[in-house]
Amino acid sequence: MSRAVVDMTDGAAGRVAVTGGSGKLGRAVVAELLDHGWEVHNLDQAPPPGHVRAHSAYTRIDLTDYGQVVEALTGIDDRHRGLDAVVHLAAVPGPGVAGNAATFSNNIRCSYNVFAAARLAGIRNVVWASSETVLGLPFETPPPYVPVDEEYAARPETSYSLAKHLDEQMAAQFARWDPQLKIIGLRFSNVMEPHDYAAFPAFDADPSLRKWNLWSYIDARDGAQAVRRALAYPNPGFEVFIIANADTVMATRTSASLAAEVYPDVPVLRDLGEHETLLSIEKARRVLGYDPRHSWRDEVHGRTQQA
């Protein structure tokens, strides 16, 4: 059972590798960890944008090659001679981006290689990107209840989601093999950056446009906060957490009305806040001290006021 952590601090920052640090979420994670005193090593196939490259070390690594991953986590010439932690974000980023078999093969192989190489290197602080999709997205079969949480069995509906589900099963076994290992999977919602929010007001007219993930999202900066807090979490073992923003993508439609209209037969477990996320972040709040701070509403309203 997860133990609550009160007044979570950043913990002792050290040297961390971020796989996929050049990607959408990865760039935010690199920036967040640098801002909190970590020495960050970005392991990716693609180089990061210039403003990220200037502040973190980048090494081109093919994560499907186990030998390269072992080298990257144990020591790279003048870059480092060992790491304190690994954040694994690199993957084919969603269903349909590549063929089913290619997505599954790439993602499951990369995760195994990172987990196994971290074990070989003696790294016992591992955080990786699982996915909201393991909850049953795109919810063509209605969820068992709302808000959904980490308590019901995974329901992968795509090859991408199946790989993420098996990542979680694999991580649990790595934790069983090493009782000192902390390995945390973050089930990130749909990752957004501020420039994406201009499209959000249009969602309000048609609830079906975003019902596939219960109208949820995660600001990349809040996703990065969750990564930092997961790295700081002191207790060993395997855990998963849903990571979403506190509100939905809908401007005026309340969460209760959306659930009643689109999923009328799905039990609602408690009273809902006006725009409260239907992907429950209560476990992440309670255990990690996660506190999302970047709502799309603030971004859009801020731009309107400036205009």
Rank of each mutant, 00 (worst) to 15 (best):
S2R: 13
A4L: 13
V6Q: 03
G11H: 01
G11N: 01
A13P: 05
G14N: 01
G20C: 05
S22L: 05
G23I: 04
V30N: 03
D35R: 15
H36V: 02
H36W: 00
G37Q: 08
E39Q: 10
D44N: 05
P47T: 02
P48S: 13
G50F: 03
R53C: 06
A54N: 04
A54Q: 09
R60Y: 04
R60T: 08
L63H: 01
Y66D: 02
V70A: 11
E71A: 15
G75V: 14
D78M: 08
R79M: 14
H80K: 06
G82Y: 14
L83I: 12
A85G: 09
V92E: 11
P93T: 09
P93Q: 09
P95L: 02
G96N: 06
A101I: 13
N107H: 11
R109C: 12
Y112W: 10
N113Y: 11
N113A: 12
A116Q: 09
A117L: 04
R119P: 07
R119E: 15
I123H: 12
N125C: 09
P138L: 06
P142D: 06
P144M: 00
P144G: 00
V148R: 05
E150G: 04
Y152I: 07
Y160I: 12
L162Y: 07
K164P: 14
H165Y: 10
L166C: 11
D167C: 15
M170L: 15
A172Y: 02
A172I: 07
A175V: 05
P179K: 12
I184R: 02
F188T: 12
F200G: 00
A202V: 03
K211M: 11
N213L: 13
W215E: 04
A220D: 08
R221L: 06
D222S: 10
G223P: 05
Q225M: 15
L231V: 09
A232V: 00
A232P: 00
F238A: 12
E239C: 02
N245V: 11
M250Q: 12
M250I: 08
R253N: 02
T254A: 07
A256N: 05
S257R: 12
S257L: 07
E261I: 01
E261D: 03
V262H: 01
V268G: 03
L269A: 10
R270C: 09
D271Y: 04
L272R: 03
L272I: 04
S280V: 07
A284Y: 00
G289Q: 01
Y290N: 10
P292Q: 01
P292N: 02
R293H: 02
H294E: 05
W296D: 00
D298F: 03
H301Y: 13
Q305A: 15
A307S: 14
